[in-house]
């Protein structure tokens, strides 16, 4: 009678009796473990934990590491979808553990978690990211200009900024590159992430190194190896249209050569 909040509180226990006591469910996490100091083979290990399904997979990994098995190894830094440290293969799809809610994964079945593919597994869910960042470095992901530096800010119209807005969102988590079947078979391929970051500068009106980057991506291991399977677009936790960006680089190469 007094306030809506109070009325709701009065009514709540009636229909949800027994259920509302605990939001926790028992979920099984099937994690691919690899420890070169113990064995040369990776194996699946099941962990059953009580967890609120509204929590994230990263929370489950924390719970396992902090309360069950301290040897479980994974990367995470900010834990809020910005740093891109905790990309992993969850139920066969590349995602960020910190952006995946357990309730979205059908927790009645075991939830499989493994390291991203195509890179050397160092321990459990930690992979060697060096080849990934080498490809990133090779496309020169920095502003290249000619002439003297201007005395004021390099201005740009909103339309010019909009041209490459999508590819500025990349957080270098490697979810796209490690979901690419071409990259799985041949690590020499630049991979979607490097092409996305080249795209970010190729279509920037302030940048003058676009031709150099296009030349790099015109290579045998460049954009022409893309088979447009769209795995990268599906995997991107930032919703970047990765395959579209790759196609735009292809189109730029063709229109600039003819």
């Amino acid at each position: 009678m007094a306030t809506p909040t109070l009325e709701k509180a009065d009514m709540a226990p009636e229909p949800e009796a027994g259920f509302a006591d605990s939001p926790y469910i028992t979920a099984t996490f099937r994690i691919r473990r690899f420890n070169p100091e113990v064995s040369d083979e990776a194996q699946w290990q099941d962990f059953q934990i009580e967890i609120d399904p509204k929590e994230r997979v990263l929370d489950a990994l924390h719970k396992i590491k902090w309360e069950t098995d301290g040897t479980l190894t994974f990367r995470r830094s900010c834990a809020h979808g910005i740093c891109g440290s905790d990309a992993m293969r969850i139920n066969g799809k590349n995602r960020l553990a910190c952006k995946t809610l357990i309730k979205d994964l059908n927790p009645e079945k075991p939830i499989t978690i493994e390291a991203i593919k195509g890179l050397t597994v160092l321990k459990d869910l930690v992979v060697d990211m060096d080849p990934f960042f080498q490809a990133y470095r090779d496309v020169m992901p920095f502003l290249i200009t000619k002439g003297n530096e201007p005395t004021r800010e390099r201005l740009q119209s909103p339309e010019d900024r909009e041209r490459f807005d999508d590819t500025t969102k990349c957080i270098l988590c490697a979810a796209c590159t490690s979901s690419c079947p071409v990259f799985w078979n041949d690590g020499q391929y630049f991979g979607p992430a490097a092409i996305v970051n080249a795209h970010r500068f190729i279509f920037d009106s302030r940048d003058e190194g676009g031709e150099q980057r296009l030349e790099i991506l015109n290579d045998r291991d460049g954009v022409w190896r893309c088979r447009t399977t769209f795995n990268c677009t599906d995997a991107c936790p930032r919703g970047i249209e990765v395959t579209k960006a790759i196609q735009e680089v292809k189109r730029a190469l063709i229109t600039r050569r003819f």
Partner: peptide, 20 residues
């Protein structure tokens, strides 16, 4: 430690640059 399984044809700093 056990040998880790390296992916095929890894990109390194020594990867040859494009044929232009």
């Amino acid at each position: 430690p056990a040998p880790v399984i390296e992916p095929p044809r890894k990109r390194t700093g020594k990867t040859p640059k494009g044929s232009r």
